[in-house]
Amino acid sequence: MRKWLTKIDQINRTESIIYLLMWLLMFTGSLFSILSNLGELRWSRIYIEWIRLTPFIIIFLINTTILAPYLLLKKRLVYYLISVSVLVTVIVLLSTQMHLLISWLFDHPNGSVLPRRPIKAKSDLLGERLIMAILIIGLNNTIKLLIQRQKEDKQHEEQKKLLLQTELSFLRNQIGPHFFMNTLNNIHALIAIDPDKAGRSVIRLSELMRHMLNEGTKEKASIKAEFGFLNSYINLMRLRCSKRVRIDVAFQVEDSDRMIPSFLFVSIVENAFKYGVDYSKPSFIEISATIVDDYLIFKSRNSKNIQIETAQKTGIGLENLQKQLHLLYETAYDLSISDEPDQFNIQLKIPIGHD
């Protein structure tokens, strides 16, 4: 929220700077007009020229602070058109009288400060003032509408990011309970078979829990930390597997400090052990990861336990993973799932940045 308010303040400052530059150009233009007509700058003439701009400044201020924010930007167009028409009519008529007063100053015998000059016809003067007022309001509204559109885009962007973070947090929070439930079930089954292994499993589980508590609130983790966690989890799972289960792990990711979404691959590894181990026959689990250019390619291949294999493709873990990938990368990732009669394959390719 604080970042969003800072961006809005920056947009408001930008709008103020644009308006300041606009009026500086108009004032500067009047100076060049005086210089071109008289060949020199006279303060009396400068004051008179700036006084002529006063009605348009009033139109601008009323429009930019009252009419546009409370009527135009709130889509109350009929009220806005009526109000701005009344404003322009009144100010233009008053500015015409001001022009006549200035012209009188030019011709006054005792107070003439500048050489005489022809007085414009009142109809021509009204037309000139009307066009000037319309141009100023048009320019003011164009800038304000563009700035408003920029504000709305910023708000939409921040709301989208907030929603994305909320959804990702929800999905990550689902990983923890699901992960620990399966792990505790495995340890419970191991207690009756090999209490010593079950004890070591509890110690390793506590290390994993400590990691998840420390890193669970972070959106990203280094490749080094993430694959260190996966290795620890795989080593924990090895304790409950018999020699009939072949487990091959090849993480060729070096000790990279490049960042990736935290706990992204846990569901794949967890599913491989949950659905790929069949104690009634030889089984296998193969997990690998490599970095090719600016992509991380994660592969998992496992045999199928025919008693529960139908749930692997549609399990909560993979469904959760697909939602996370869509939120994180939209279409900038590649997830392929191959469900064959005797094995299950997953390949995930995600972009990784440089730090």
Rank of each mutant, 00 (worst) to 15 (best):
K197I: 13
D278K: 09
I137S: 00
S288F: 14
T217H: 14
N141E: 10
E309Q: 09
G29N: 03
I18Q: 02
E319N: 04
G228K: 11
K122N: 11
D334Y: 13
E158A: 09
E254W: 06
I62C: 06
L21M: 07
R200P: 02
E15R: 08
L72K: 14
L38P: 02
V78Y: 09
V92F: 06
E219A: 10
I352P: 03
S201T: 01
V245Y: 06
T65V: 13
N186H: 12
F273C: 04
S16M: 14
N302Y: 12
S83F: 14
F344S: 04
E270S: 15
K122P: 09
G111L: 08
Y80F: 14
L163Y: 05
T54D: 03
R13G: 01
Q150I: 07
H108P: 00
L94M: 10
N110G: 06
R204T: 14
E309P: 01
G315P: 02
L296Q: 15
L100E: 13
L31H: 01
V266G: 08
E286Q: 14
K3C: 13
L5W: 11
L190T: 05
I287F: 06
S242W: 06
N302F: 09
L93F: 15
N214W: 08
I203W: 05
I203L: 15
I285P: 02
M212F: 07
L94Y: 14
K120R: 07
F27Q: 02
Q307L: 15
K122G: 13
T310S: 14
L205H: 00
L162Y: 11
G228T: 06
P109W: 05
L318K: 01
L67E: 11
N271T: 04
Y70W: 15
A68G: 11
I18D: 00
I247R: 04
H99G: 05
T89C: 08
D278H: 09
V90W: 03
T14D: 13
W23E: 03
N182S: 11
L101A: 05
L41E: 07
V277D: 05
R45N: 15
N110A: 13
I17V: 05
Q150N: 08
L125T: 12
D355E: 12
L105A: 04
L35H: 03
L335F: 04
K151Q: 09
V92I: 12
E226H: 04
F32I: 12
R76F: 10
I59E: 01
Q324S: 11
D278P: 01
C241N: 12
D196V: 15
K7V: 15
K144E: 02
E340M: 14
A225L: 09
T331S: 05
L77I: 10
M209L: 06
I260Q: 11
L73M: 08
S201L: 02
K224Q: 06
I308A: 01
K349A: 07
L205E: 00
F227D: 01
I291C: 11
A192H: 13
I8V: 07
S242F: 07
S201W: 12
R301C: 09
